[in-house]
C-alpha cells in the first residue's frame, strides 16, 4: 500500500490512518476479550443457551438407571473440599426433625432414629464440584425415593425444594430427586457424617453438581411450580439444572 518513508515522517503525535486502524483493532479485541471482572454479556448469553442446555440435560438424564459406582479402594478422602456459604451450623441429632411437606398426601416429620430405621443405601460415586475438582466418596443414607413413597407426592408435584439449617436453599427437578442414587445421606466414607460435611443430613447424588447437594437439610417440600428463589447460587447466576 503506502510506501513506508512518508508515514514514518509524520509519526509522533499525528494520528496516521495506519495508527487509527491499529488502535481500533486493539480496542475491538479489548471489547471481545477484556472481561476484567464484569460478567460480560453472560446473563444475556445464558438466556439464549440455558433453555436449550437444560432441555438436553433433562433428556440425557436416565431417571431410574443407576450410574456405575466405584470400588471402595477408589475413595479419595482428601479430595473432598469443604464449601459453605455461611459457616457450619451445629445441630443436635437427638432433637433434629426432618420436615417433609408441600404437594404431598401425607406430610410428616421424621427424627434421625426414624430415618436410620429405614433401609440404608450405600454408594461409592464421584462428587463433582462446579469449580472443577472432583472426589470419589462413599455416601450412606435413605433414598429420597423411599421418603417420597412415605409422603405420597400429589400428581402435580414437579419440583422438590430443600431448605437447610444455615438458610441455604435449593430446588430440583422431580426425576433427579427420585433417582435411585439420590440420598439423604448421614454417612460418609463408612463413618457418621461430620458437621462440616452436612451432619446430620445432607443430599448426595452422582447426577448433580455439588452446589445442588445441600448440607444440613431440615425441610423437603414437593412443589407444583418453581419458586422465584430457585437456589442460593442459581439466584446469583449459576445454572439451575446442573446435571452431570
Amino acid at each position: 500500500m503506502q510506501p513506508t518513508p512518508p508515514s514514518r515522517r509524520i509519526s509522533g503525535r499525528i494520528l496516521t490512518r495506519r495508527r487509527i486502524l491499529q488502535l481500533s483493532g486493539l480496542s475491538g479485541a479489548g471489547v471481545l476479550l477484556n472481561a476484567c471482572g464484569a460478567p460480560l454479556y453472560s446473563n444475556q448469553v445464558s438466556q439464549v443457551s440455558e433453555p436449550l442446555n437444560q432441555r438436553v440435560e433433562g433428556l440425557l438424564l436416565r431417571p431410574q438407571t443407576p450410574v456405575p459406582e466405584y470400588p471402595v479402594s477408589a475413595i479419595t478422602p482428601d479430595a473432598l473440599l469443604i464449601n459453605s456459604f455461611n459457616g457450619t451450623p451445629q445441630i443436635d441429632p437427638a432433637t433434629f426433625q426432618l420436615t417433609l411437606d408441600g404437594a404431598v398426601d401425607r406430610p410428616m416429620q421424621l427424627s434421625m432414629a426414624e430415618l436410620q430405621a429405614m433401609p440404608l443405601t450405600s454408594m461409592v460415586i464421584r462428587h463433582v464440584c462446579v469449580e472443577g475438582w472432583a472426589a470419589i466418596v462413599q455416601w450412606g443414607g435413605v433414598r429420597l425415593q423411599d421418603l417420597a413413597t412415605l409422603v405420597q407426592p400429589k400428581p402435580e408435584a414437579k419440583y422438590v425444594y430443600f431448605q437447610s439449617a444455615d438458610n441455604y436453599y435449593e430446588s430440583w427437578d422431580l426425576p433427579s430427586a427420585l433417582h435411585p442414587q439420590t440420598l439423604m445421606a448421614y454417612q460418609r466414607d463408612g463413618h457418621q457424617l461430620a458437621p462440616e460435611n452436612g451432619a446430620p443430613l445432607r443430599l448426595a447424588t452422582p447426577v448433580k453438581l455439588g452446589y445442588k447437594l445441600s448440607k444440613w437439610v431440615t425441610r423437603i417440600s414437593f412443589m407444583a411450580d418453581l419458586p422465584d428463589q430457585q437456589g442460593y447460587w442459581e439466584d446469583k447466576g449459576y445454572e439451575w439444572f446442573a446435571g452431570l
Binding site: L33, N34, A35, G37, L40, V45, S49, E239
Partner: peptide, 17 residues
C-alpha cells in the same frame, strides 16, 4: 483476567456452554 471471558465462574460457564 485479560485472557478470560465471563467475569466469574458462572459467567465463564454460560459462555462456554
Amino acid at each position: 483476567a485479560l485472557f478470560t471471558l465471563g467475569g466469574w465462574l458462572a459467567g465463564g460457564r454460560h459462555w462456554h456452554f
